[in-house]
């Protein structure tokens, strides 16, 4: 099943690139536009991902599991949410950076509700983005958005985390991710 899935993915990727290349050769506008979109976003991500993954690697090697467990694990209190929101505030990029970070935290012993809070907060309160937002949308907009969304993110993460823990659900534990 997994193998067949990979096969479909490879076919899809190969077909996509053939389509883009042919579009450029025969000057097919929509295909060229899609190709340019791909280029823009790939460059955007390549600016962020290698650095993000190196930082994740350093974190994995240097930070002890007991430390993460103590502050973000099952027996940590409300402060754990504060810490991850702070961490989320300094995250760059977007959700796609937050996922590997959250996963690493989880493997180091952080509880589920804490990592969901992290992912949510990485979406809504990254500091550089928030400043940017306030300058375009006005400070009132930003403040209302933060006041409403942060508690909702924490609350829903606790609900989801507890629900999954009760069901003994575990994230797919892969050593190579």
């Amino acid at each position: 099943m997994k193998k067949q899935n990979n096969f479909i993915k490879i076919i899809f990727i190969v077909f996509y690139f053939i389509f883009i290349i042919v579009s450029f050769i025969i000057d097919f506008q929509p295909g060229k536009q899609i190709g340019l979109n791909f280029k823009t976003f790939t460059i955007e991500m390549l600016k962020i991902l290698p650095c993000a993954f190196i930082l994740i690697g350093l974190f994995e090697v240097w930070v002890k599991k007991e430390k993460v467990e103590k502050h973000l694990g099952k027996d940590s209190g409300m402060m754990s949410y504060f810490w991850v929101i702070l961490l989320a505030g300094t995250t760059v990029g977007g959700l796609y950076v937050a996922f590997p970070v959250a996963y690493t935290l989880f493997k180091k012993g952080a509880k589920l509700s804490v990592i969901f809070t992290y992912v949510g907060a990485a979406g809504i309160c990254r500091i550089p983005m928030t400043i940017f937002e306030a300058s375009f949308m006005g400070i009132k907009f930003t403040i209302i958005r933060l006041i409403v969304s942060i508690p909702l993110v924490i609350f829903s993460s606790i609900l989801l985390g507890n629900y999954l823990e009760k069901k003994k659900y575990n994230l797919p534990l892969k050593s190579n991710l």
């Binding site: 791909f38 991902l49 190196i54 690697g57 240097w62 590997p100 190579n176 991710l177």
Partner: peptide
Amino acid sequence: AIQVSYKKFTNILPAFLIMLILV
């Protein structure tokens, strides 16, 4: 740490490629 990063990065790369294509 660099080896860990490299491994993690290359393992998730195919998923990223699919995402970029969809975007």
